[in-house]
Nucleic acid binder design. Structure first.
Lengths: 211, 211, 211, 211
DNA sequence: TATGAATGAGCATTCATTCAT
DNA sequence: GATGAATGAATGCTCATTCAT
């Protein structure tokens, strides 16, 4: 019984993987703090504690690092979404609609730990760079699909006619509020903003059951 | 007394003022199309048809030009808002709440003619630059104040408790949707998105009269 | 009587032209001495006594400077060829064929003052770079045409059948010997080599008159 | 006594020797195709299918590989020259002078299979590098000695006075034409050029025996 | 011996900005 | 005011070479 397993196949990559990780961490730190344009590849290498040559051993250029950071984050967030939804009462049909919305908002909020500064940089780049725009678009589509699926199950209690427009609208609104909370969050308490957001979405989407 | 006509009416519109204007126009064009970072001061001067030295005669640096562009735009938009509100039925107390919201949304939309690309650049800069952040903040506050004033007059039909949070929320939502429409507007018809937005805001803010 | 002449039209280019010239001189010096690849743009700027930025104000890149050096030289040589031929007895029909060849060889030699090192660099680059190859080719064609024209006038005393092949052959031979004289010239006296060359060409081209 | 066949005959042809050979082959391929400067040591290693470390196990640096390639080629050519001359009718005293020259030219041509691109690279390097210059010089001397020896045997039919200059001249001419045929060979047929060359050399060297 | 991750000096090039004319 | 030549710090990136495994 060979218990040497898969690890044996990647012996020398141990150090390599560490270097790569150090660069990624440094990139995340610096891009977030100072922005993409104000961060030189040399600074990243220095922050990572590696030689500039090592940077280019792992990434073809600076842009690719930003790309990679974004990809990693998207991946991570998406993995968490599935788990989050299952662990919450979102899928439970007994959950009333207000609590459903509240849960979605809060789950989303808890996932929004990715540097909003970096998010902005990516958004800005998406503007002048097609590759980034496409990635951004694809991601948003994926997120929206999850929401749509949830709402479809409560179709008969929904109030909106134009579901497509509603999907886009909700997606944009959530993103904008989350971003803003991260950035200007100090101006007002999180709780209040999230409550207001949940209120708005709920009243928009669902019929006034009783009340 | 020289009655030389039109020239006499704009004595200050010297060559000097014209040069400045040419630079501003060129800056708006290039920043919008290629972004702040991809636009060099030399290119701006060339596009404006003036010498690079002239650029620095009128602006201390590239950032200041962006600043100025933003200021000019804010100013212009604000002037239009006042007129727009007066010319619309927004202030008319007989206007029903749904029409009120619809009017606000449409007026806002009609004002959003400023390059969204540039808007993004400014937003991104606001992130790493305090001056820009403050200007951005101040402007949003000003816009919010206008909305708040309008809603205050219909206080008894309002449904929201936390007016402060609601103000911020609405501001952010409107901005996000407007931006997005400009950028990704082609995906879905303007009208549908604006309708959905008006629906959402209306249901959030006002009690269901009749039903 | 306006004696301000053409100079008045290029007042500010005075300094500019000087800088450009300094860069060209420095480039010629360094490329010749150390070769193209061993000469960095920074070194050229330093040798020229200008800032590196100035280098790029005048040349889009290092390659373009080499190109320019080559162009300048070709131009110069070509201008001299016409004058040289006229001033010599080459066109005089009374000149006997041996003296004719001798004159051509000597005129060519006197024109070959361009750094052979640089010539080599260009030749080498022509090998991996299409632009250079074309320029090189064009130039050789031009030079050959001059020779052909001269020989055509003494057609009946010529001994060669395949004039086309002869043209190419002579061009290559002359170039090779001239280059070599510059480079390894110290091994043997110029005069002896040029005599040998003239002998070879003469015996190849013309019938043994008398004998 | 292990009769294991071919392997036994080349016991030193270990893995080690094979690695070295792979690098040499890759170097020849890449230097020829893209030139010395455009070929990095990493690319050579990759082309050879070995690690970059192995490259430096066998060669102190990139230059040394080029050196080695040149040495190998010179060696090979020289071995062939001896055989070629013997197998031809060059040494046969009954061969008439025109046929002699023709044979020499054709033999030389058949040996010129070494990448002219690489030849140029070496020539260029010889210019800025003393080691290369010396090797180049030595080689030319060796080749010239062979020619001189052949001609000495027909001294009384020779027409040239300055044998030393003639030797250099012929060497250069042959080299130039051969190179050029390889490079620009397509412009004109090989045969015509080689004939023209043989004509020129023959008329230069030998008395017009009858005819 | 073979490997390939790590190194960092060095390079080509850009661009915001100054200042003499 | 207007001009544009001149500047040089800074940037993104390459590549020959080393060395621990």
């Amino acid at each position: 019984m060979q218990n040497e397993g898969p690890e044996a196949k990647i012996p020398k990559q141990k150090r390599s993987e560490k270097t790569r990780q150090k660069i990624i961490d440094a990139g995340l730190r610096l891009f977030s703090e100072h922005g993409y344009h104000a961060t030189s590849s040399k600074k990243i290498a220095r922050e990572a504690g590696v030689a500039i040559g090592s940077f280019y051993n792992y990434f073809t250029d600076k842009k690719q690092l930003l790309f990679e950071l974004h990809r990693i984050h998207s991946e991570r967030v998406h993995g968490m979404i599935a788990r989050s939804i299952e662990e919450s009462n979102i899928l439970d049909p007994r959950t009333d609609s207000r609590s459903l919305i509240q849960a979605i908002v809060e789950q989303t909020w808890s996932l929004h730990d990715f540097s909003p500064a970096l998010q902005r940089e990516i958004t800005a780049l998406a503007y002048t760079n097609d590759e980034f725009a496409q990635m951004q678009r694809a991601e948003q589509g994926r997120d929206m699909a999850v929401l749509t699926e949830i709402f479809r199950k409560r179709k008969n209690t929904l109030r909106v006619n134009d579901l497509e427009a509603a999907g886009i609208l909700i997606g944009q609104t959530m993103e904008a509020v989350m971003h803003s909370l991260w950035i200007f969050g100090s101006a007002i308490d999180h709780k209040r903003m999230l409550d207001a957001l949940a209120d708005m979405l709920h009243r928009y989407l669902f019929k006034d059951t009783k009340k």
